[in-house]
């Protein structure tokens, strides 16, 4: 990764030197160890603040929405993108929130991002550094070096990743990686939950949603949530009451999940930011699984021109405004 960081800074510097990039979205060191934070580099000199390492994995794609709004018309926006952010960017492109010409994407073939909390459990402190190797991860603490299996220390979402390399980029750092570091069945969790009784499943979700604080972080980071005015904020009609009774919590979570059904790119940002551990990806994955099965889509999370729920046809067997296919 050290090598990739160097390349990234070079790419960003060149982009600024070229003069067409107004801002470059990446990472810088955070206040706490192993917690890099997003940075918006606005000049060539500040490029050296950018980092790219085993911990820098906060989702960045949604920032494009705001930056595109604020950017000069002909200026472009640079962004570093791991595979998950690559899909997030594609989502914004397919939803016509931004245009491809506006973007300068520096892709990263991503070997997976280390979860600092998991690492701390393993080595008793937040590690100083980490190196993700082919089969394992080497964690560097203040006093020792620890080699652990990827399953033990990568972020949950990285363990299921099918798309470590962005599909679109202007420059690529490192090699293209075809599949995620550890291949777990994306729908394991959904299948387990499908197997229990309705009552048990209902109780499970009541418990999850009751923890929800309605902080809206899940919505705010989601690259598929790009509505100018979110329906959940509308006052007339007020679809979502502000009470946090169970029924309103269901209303919130179902609305969120259904509004991204068939559009969720499975980047996992929503679940990652949730402060109380609501398993939002379980909901998203259930919908992805159903979309995949019902419409025979092998990869329903990949944005495309012909998304099952994004395309309408007058020949639809289910009918169109009650006119056709009623029989």
């Amino acid at each position: 990764m050290r090598q990739l960081q160097k390349q990234l800074r070079q790419e960003a510097e060149d982009a600024f030197a070229d003069g067409h990039v107004e801002v470059f979205i990446g990472y810088q060191e955070g206040f706490e160890r192993a917690r890099p934070v997003p940075v918006f580099v606005r000049d060539r000199e500040s490029v050296q603040e950018m980092v790219l390492n085993e911990f820098s994995g906060v989702s960045l794609s949604k920032y494009l929405l705001r930056e595109a709004e604020r950017a000069q018309e002909d200026a472009s926006i640079g962004i570093v993108a791991r595979g998950c952010d690559g899909l997030g960017i594609e989502r914004l492109l397919y939803d016509q929130c931004i245009s491809r010409e506006q973007l300068y994407i520096v892709g990263v073939g991503c070997p997976g991002v280390v979860d600092p909390e998991k690492a701390a459990q393993l080595c008793g402190e937040i590690p100083v550094a980490a190196e993700v190797e082919k089969q394992q991860v080497v964690l560097q603490t203040s006093s020792e070096e620890l080699t652990v299996a990827k399953e033990e220390v990568l972020r949950d979402k990285c363990l299921k990743c099918d798309d470590p390399t962005p599909r679109i980029y202007d420059a690529l750092l490192g090699e293209e990686i075809q599949r995620g570091p550890v291949r777990q069945n994306r729908f394991d969790g959904v299948e387990q939950l499908e197997a229990v009784s309705d009552d048990e499943r209902y109780e499970f979700w009541v418990r999850q949603f009751d923890r929800c604080l309605r902080c809206f972080a899940c919505r705010n980071v989601c690259p598929a949530c790009s509505c100018v005015t979110c329906s959940l904020e509308e006052e007339e009609p007020q679809w979502l009451k502000r009470s946090t009774s169970s029924s309103e919590q269901f209303m919130f979570h179902f609305t969120r999940a259904y509004h991204v059904a068939g559009r969720c790119v499975s980047c996992g940002a929503c679940e990652e930011v949730c402060p109380v551990g609501v398993p939002l990806m379980l909901l998203n994955e259930k919908l992805l699984k159903d979309v995949g099965e019902l419409f025979e889509e092998p990869s329903p999370h990949l944005p495309s021109e012909t998304e099952p729920l994004g395309e309408f046809s007058y020949d639809d067997p289910e009918g169109w405004r009650g006119e056709a296919g009623q029989s």
Partner: peptide, 25 residues
């Protein structure tokens, strides 16, 4: 603020934040 997501996490997990709103249902 450049990186702020305008979410409510900080205030909602904060033990001293007390701001509230009134609303009718």
């Amino acid at each position: 603020a450049g990186r702020c997501r305008s979410c409510g996490i900080c205030g909602y997990v904060c033990p001293t934040c007390y701001c509230f709103a009134l609303f009718d249902d």
